[in-house]
Simulated scan of single mutants.
Amino acid sequence: MSIDPSSIPNFGAQPGPQPTGGPAGPVVPDQDLVKQLLEQMELKYVVDDEGDLAAPWEEFRTYFMFRGEEDQQVFSVRTFYDRPHSIDDKLALLETIDDWNRRTLWPKVYTHTHDDGAVRLIGEAQMLIGTGVALEHFVSSTVSWVRASIEFDKWLVEQLGLEKDADAAEGDDEGDAPGDDA
């Protein structure tokens, strides 16, 4: 099975040619199909030590995982946001991501508190694929989930003013140590 490049949604761009032909029935997606889709989206990817496919960005990593038994198999797109947050900021962070979760379909975002007290965010979307899905549905959902994961990171930076924090940290690197009020 292969992906017709015209079937990849272009969200916001002028509509391209509509896909024609393709499989008559449902397909059961696999890692090779996801690799092909990522290549067509011009996204770099790696396969980790556990055999999961991951697309790395500067501030997060998105994994494309297949889990479960054959007839109950689930395809999961899970994004791990690398930016650490303080445990003291967790309540405000939860309120912010609750707002995102109420307003959007995906990714659904939750927190994970590490042993060192750092709070990180994880976004996730899932699809039951064990009995097969329409190829067009699989492609459009996967593309939408990847784009929404990127949009969430941008939205969070804007909501929490993290862009200003990053700019201030760059200024600190130029001679002033954090906390110096000389």
Rank of each mutant, 00 (worst) to 15 (best):
D88W: 14
D89L: 13
D89V: 05
L91Y: 14
L91D: 13
L94F: 13
T96M: 15
T96Q: 13
D99S: 15
W100K: 03
R102S: 04
R102T: 02
R103E: 13
T104F: 15
P107N: 08
P107Y: 02
P107C: 04
K108M: 05
K108L: 06
K108Y: 04
V109C: 07
T111W: 06
T111I: 01
T111A: 10
H112Y: 13
H112C: 10
H112M: 12
T113K: 06
H114F: 15
D115F: 13
D116T: 00
D116E: 02
D116C: 03
A118K: 13
R120Q: 10
R120Y: 05
I122A: 10
G123H: 06
G123N: 06
G123V: 00
Q126F: 11
Q126I: 03
Q126T: 09
L128C: 06
L128W: 09
L128K: 11
G130Q: 03
G130T: 01
T131I: 02
G132S: 05
V133S: 04
F138G: 03
V139I: 12
V139L: 10
S140L: 07
V143F: 13
S144V: 00
W145H: 06
R147Q: 13
A148P: 06
A148V: 00
S149D: 08
S149Y: 04
S149N: 08
I150Q: 15
E151M: 09
E151F: 10
F152M: 00
V157H: 15
V157S: 14
V157I: 03
V157R: 15
E158N: 04
E158S: 02
Q159I: 00
Q159L: 00
L160K: 15
L162D: 04
L162N: 03
A169Y: 14
E170Q: 13
G171N: 12
D173C: 04
G175E: 10
D176Y: 04
D176T: 01
P178S: 05
